[in-house]
Design a protein around this nucleic acid. Structure first.
Length: 356
DNA sequence: AAAACGGGGCC
DNA sequence: GGCCCAGTTTT
């Protein structure tokens, strides 16, 4: 373990700025000098929700989740299907499965591990979340490195190597802040101060350098590189895939749904039954082989439903049919349309929103 | 090291 | 339409 070579600015100006300008957020407790540590369950829950998810999206969902599962014991005791349903629409559903598994481990152990290394062992907790919970909930002297912190540190140090290759170096650099006694005295506030700086001042585009507590200490700003950093490696193109889905309803407004396999894409979520998603379009006849019931006369719903995933774009055709009474085949279930809407992931909601 | 894994908001 | 977001897991 060697000291980082680049010089970091002092922590004190950032903490002073944070004490005046910190954001008030639903999932954030009072903090500040002398403030106690927040509830570890709530910190952990918010950090998992915030993985690749914006603060604005998490706010209301955090409150709703907490109302339904107020403690880690309550979450551990809940059926996994209830947790998946509560998570519907938030994306990255592996988070919800790991959250539930983690809750069961933590409840069984009588509480969360109090340091980053112990937290890191739990499902769904990687380097970032382990450090965030350790710093914010337990006051451990570590620096969680998220996209905000990478950006801030890349600019402070004028790091020109592109992400994700530069990640280890930026993380080591960020860790150097804990050698400053001012940061070490308030690790949770320091972490959140970096988040707030990245979210409100040191933004991805058009950073407000004139308002930055570190404006005199930033190598990127001194060189006019603040808009260019951090650099990013080029991304792969997203292919277009195709599917055909079958909306089977009954005379009392129920719809037939299927539970997806527990792992992989949309793992454990409900879906409108359909064909696999593949590169080529489906012909009418071959798609019929995947209908949930044979021998029905399906009508084509006009239009196409589109949805973008991280790594591919999906174009879906919807076929509809109605029968008097649904008797769900093995692995499927019938749900009232309104209830199905809230339990389904967004890609499936798009099908229900096609004009019918 | 690279790919898989959602969804929404902003320009 | 591309970029970004309080990343983690699997291959």
């Amino acid at each position: 373990m060697s000291a980082p070579s680049a010089k970091l600015p002092p922590a004190a100006p950032l903490l002073a700025w944070y004490d005046r300008h910190r954001r008030v957020l639903p999932f954030r407790s009072q903090g500040g000098p002398g403030g106690g540590h927040p509830n570890p369950y709530q910190v952990w829950l918010s950090e998992v929700m915030l993985q690749q998810t914006t603060v604005a999206a998490v706010g209301p969902r955090f409150d709703r989740f907490l109302a339904r599962f107020p403690t880690v014991e309550a979450l551990a005791a809940a059926p996994e299907g209830d947790v998946m349903e509560e998570w519907a629409g938030l994306g990255y559903y592996a988070r919800a499965r790991n959250l539930h598994a983690c809750a069961r481990l933590v409840a069984g152990q009588g509480g969360f591990p109090r340091d980053a290394a112990g937290l890191r062992e739990l499902p769904g907790i990687g380097a970032y979340t382990a450090a965030a919970v350790a710093a914010i909930a337990f006051g451990q002297p570590v620096v969680p490195v998220d996209g905000n912190v990478e950006r801030v540190v890349a600019r402070l140090a004028a790091e020109e190597a592109p992400l994700p290759g530069a990640r280890p170096r930026l993380a080591a650099l960020a860790g150097g802040f804990m050698e400053d006694p001012a940061a070490r005295a308030r690790p949770g506030d320091f972490a959140q101060a970096l988040f707030d700086l990245g979210a409100t001042i040191c933004t991805p585009r058009a950073p407000a350098c004139a308002l930055c507590p570190w404006r005199g200490d930033c190598a990127a700003q001194q060189r006019g590189l603040q808009e260019e950093l951090p650099r990013k490696a080029p991304k792969r193109a997203r292919p277009l895939r195709h599917g055909v889905h079958f909306l089977l309803t009954d005379s009392v407004g129920q719809v037939l749904l299927r539970r997806r396999p527990p792992r992989g894409l949309l793992g454990g979520m409900l879906e409108v039954p359909g064909t696999p998603w593949r590169d080529e379009r489906w012909g009418e006849a071959e798609a019929q082989d995947f209908a949930p019931l044979p021998g029905l006369s399906w009508r084509r719903v006009p239009g196409l439903a589109r949805h973008g995933f991280t790594h591919f774009e999906l174009e879906m055709v919807l076929l509809a049919a109605e029968i008097p009474a649904l008797l769900p085949p093995d692995g499927m279930e019938a749900r009232p349309l309104a209830e199905a809407e809230s339990a389904l992931p967004t890609v499936m909601r798009r099908l229900l929103h096609l004009p019918r």
